[in-house]
Amino acid sequence: MSELIKIVLADDEELFRKGLVFLLQREANIKVQYEASNGQELVDYLKTCEVYPDIILMDLKMPFLNGVEATKLIHSEYPNINIIALTSYNTESFIANMINVGASSYLVKNATPQEMLNTIKEVANKGFYYNETVMKVIHKNIISATKNTKSILDDDFLTAREKEVLELICKQFSTPEIAEKLFISPRTVEGHRNNLLLKTQSRNVAGLVVYAIQNKIMTIEDDSM
C-alpha cells in the first residue's frame, strides 16, 4: 500500500551502519539502496547511480568529506533528496548548522529505533520533520543569522491562502491533511506549495519552514509546560 522508501546510509562506523541496515531491512516499505563509509564515497555514488534515493541518513563526522560538507553539496546538486542528520552531536550549533545547509531532519544516535523509523516516515511523507527541540533551535539561531534571504516586501507578497498553506506546512501537516483542513483538493495544495517555493526561492519544503520563521509568518512559542 505505501510506497517503497529508498535509503542510503553514510556512516564510517561499520558496526553501527550494519546494525541500521539490519533494522531498516525488516521494514516492508524500506529498502537500503547503498552504504557509504564517508561523504566522498556517497557523493561519488550519487554521480553514477541510476535511481536516486529518497532519503540519506548522514553521519556528521566522517573521513575524506564530512557530513556537513556532503550535505551542502548534495542539497545544491540534488535538492529532491532528503537528508536526515544522524549523529551523536546534540548541541544547538550542530543542529542549526545542519538545518541551515539543507538537512530535512536531525536525529541523535541515542534515539530509539521507533523514533528513527517515525522520522524516516515523516520525511518521506512531508519532505521534512523537525521535532520541538529542532524547531526551537531554528527559531533561536537561524532567525538571527545574517543570511541573505529574500524577505516579504509587502503584504501582498504571499496571498492569504498561500499563508494558510505555509502555516499548515510549518505545523507538519501532510498535503492530504492540508487539503482536508482548507476544503480544497490535494492538487490545489501542491499548486500553492509550488508557488511558495518559487516566491520564497526555497529549494525544498524544509526551506519553506526556515523562511516562515525568518519572516515571522510562524513563531515558536516557548511553552515550558
Rank of each mutant, 00 (worst) to 15 (best):
Q33G: 06
N100C: 03
Y45T: 13
S37A: 12
L57T: 11
N100I: 01
R26W: 01
G67V: 10
N97Y: 09
N29D: 13
Y78M: 06
I56F: 00
D44A: 12
T71D: 04
T91I: 11
A70F: 08
G39Q: 07
K72T: 13
K72Y: 06
Q33Y: 03
H75V: 04
G67W: 07
S104C: 05
E77Y: 11
T48I: 11
V43T: 13
A28L: 08
S37C: 11
M98C: 09
I95D: 01
T71Y: 02
I84N: 00
N100M: 10
I83Y: 00
G102N: 13
P63W: 04
Y34W: 05
T87F: 03
S37H: 14
L57M: 13
D54R: 14
N66C: 03
L86G: 02
M58F: 02
Y89A: 11
L107D: 09
S76I: 10
S76C: 07
Y106N: 01
S88P: 00
G67Q: 10
T87E: 03
I56E: 00
K61P: 00
N90P: 00
A28S: 15
N80L: 12
H75L: 08
L46W: 07
L65I: 12
D59K: 12
N66T: 02
N97D: 14
Q33F: 01
E50G: 06
G39E: 07
I56G: 03
I81D: 01
K72E: 13
I84M: 03
I30A: 02
S37P: 00
K72L: 04
R26M: 06
S37T: 11
L73R: 14
A85S: 08
S104Q: 07
N38D: 15
I74S: 02
K61R: 14
I55Q: 09
L65K: 15
V51Y: 00
I30W: 01
L86F: 02
V51T: 12
N90S: 15
K31V: 12
I55H: 02
L73D: 07
E35I: 14
G67L: 08
A70V: 14
A103T: 14
D54H: 14
P53Y: 00
I30E: 08
E92G: 10
K72I: 11
Y78V: 03
N38M: 09
S37N: 14
L107M: 15
L42P: 09
I84P: 01
F94E: 13
E92H: 12
A28W: 04
T48G: 03
I74L: 01
K47G: 05
F64Y: 05
L60C: 13
